[in-house]
Amino acid sequence: MPEAGHRRSHLQAPIGSAATPELAAAVADAGGLGMLALTGLTEAEAVDWVRRVRQATNRPFGVNFVLDFPITDTLAACLDEGVPVVSTFWGDPATVTGRIHPAGALHLHVVGSVEEASRAVDAGVDIVVAQGWEAGGHVRGQVTTLALVPAVVDAVDPVPVIAAGGIGDGRGLAAVLALGAQAGRLGTRFLTAVEALTHDIHRRRVIEAAAQDAVYTRCFDDRWPNAPHRAIRNSTLSQWEAAGSPTAPRRPGENEMVATDTSGRTRLRYGVGMPLAGMTGDTEAMPLYAGQSAGLIREIAPAAQIVTAIAIQAGQIIEALRQRPSTTAR
């Protein structure tokens, strides 16, 4: 069946702290590539998460690190565990490629422009992830997926390219494959996976959202300034925009504690952390990261069902296009 091969053509984006070992393992078991987001975790925490994935699946998976933060020791611990894939974001991939490759892992790096893609290839990365402006969470560039992916494919050939940003179903996957990408990377779609640690409020807002509700902004920047992102409009974002989008420390509700996590730590209104299951307080005020593909998502489902449905739809579309009569004039 044509759809079977397309299960290997999509990846689960790291989606921050919502990406649990259970989610990564379920995606991997279903034929996709599951990912863990490990920036900010201690070495022991990262090793525990990696081992939990390994206990749940024997399929390949990956770990993601944001290079704007200290990740040296945690990356080393993951490489010692033999993780097969390391994804990096922001920062210079050349600072870590020399450690990733000797450990036998593949190095993926996320880019937002052709220039950045070329620099990543020069640094020695194995695969380039071209992230379009439609993406949720932190957004690297300002070019849409439709325009960015084929330009990056042309610029870095024969290095493989994975497309990210705005892909919410099999139609989007089929489209980026047609643009020359070898795979698609989906984040927002997996926020509504049963296995994700997404807070119920965040999950519900994703399901209810229209594409235009996912706003490109710099609102939530405590601990990570100058890092634009896309999140669903909420009370904090609306109040901040109404005040003229001021910078810190002049934002409305500056330094206000809005929620508490399961370990008792409080969370700031403009903090970068997303609400997770078990948090209490005004969690709606926290960043509800999501891409414009939120407008396509209308259900909560197990990760395996999501992977399978996307693969089937993409395979059916590609097969239908193959069988479509040519309209070339004779």
Score class of each variant (00 low, 15 high):
1 M>D: 11
4 A>M: 12
4 A>L: 14
11 L>F: 12
12 Q>C: 08
13 A>D: 01
14 P>A: 07
22 E>Y: 03
23 L>I: 01
24 A>P: 03
25 A>K: 05
25 A>F: 02
32 G>F: 06
32 G>K: 08
35 M>L: 02
38 L>P: 00
40 G>Y: 02
41 L>R: 13
42 T>Q: 11
44 A>C: 04
45 E>W: 04
46 A>M: 10
48 D>H: 13
54 R>F: 09
55 Q>T: 15
59 R>L: 02
59 R>A: 14
60 P>N: 13
62 G>R: 04
63 V>W: 05
65 F>V: 12
66 V>M: 15
67 L>E: 13
68 D>I: 13
71 I>K: 00
72 T>F: 14
73 D>F: 07
74 T>S: 09
74 T>Y: 01
77 A>Y: 05
84 P>G: 07
85 V>K: 00
85 V>S: 00
86 V>M: 00
86 V>P: 00
87 S>I: 01
88 T>S: 15
88 T>L: 05
89 F>N: 04
91 G>H: 05
94 A>T: 07
95 T>V: 12
99 R>Y: 06
106 L>Q: 03
109 H>S: 04
110 V>Y: 01
111 V>H: 08
116 E>A: 15
119 R>Y: 09
120 A>Q: 10
124 G>E: 10
132 G>Y: 09
133 W>G: 05
136 G>K: 11
137 G>C: 15
138 H>P: 02
139 V>F: 13
141 G>W: 01
144 T>C: 09
154 D>T: 12
158 P>Y: 10
158 P>Q: 10
159 V>H: 11
167 I>T: 04
173 L>W: 00
173 L>Y: 01
177 L>K: 06
177 L>M: 08
178 A>Q: 06
182 Q>Y: 00
183 A>T: 00
184 G>M: 03
195 E>Q: 04
201 I>P: 02
202 H>Y: 10
205 R>P: 02
211 A>V: 04
211 A>W: 09
213 D>E: 14
226 N>G: 12
229 H>A: 13
229 H>I: 03
230 R>C: 07
230 R>F: 09
230 R>L: 10
231 A>Y: 05
234 N>Q: 00
235 S>N: 09
237 L>I: 03
238 S>V: 10
238 S>C: 02
238 S>T: 14
238 S>M: 07
242 A>Y: 01
242 A>T: 02
251 R>N: 01
253 G>T: 07
257 M>Y: 09
260 T>P: 02
262 T>N: 00
266 T>M: 06
268 L>D: 10
272 V>I: 15
272 V>S: 13
279 M>C: 12
281 G>S: 11
284 E>A: 15
287 P>W: 10
288 L>A: 11
292 Q>F: 11
295 G>W: 11
296 L>A: 13
303 A>F: 03
309 A>G: 12
310 I>F: 00
312 I>L: 12
322 R>T: 15
323 Q>H: 15
326 S>D: 14
327 T>S: 11
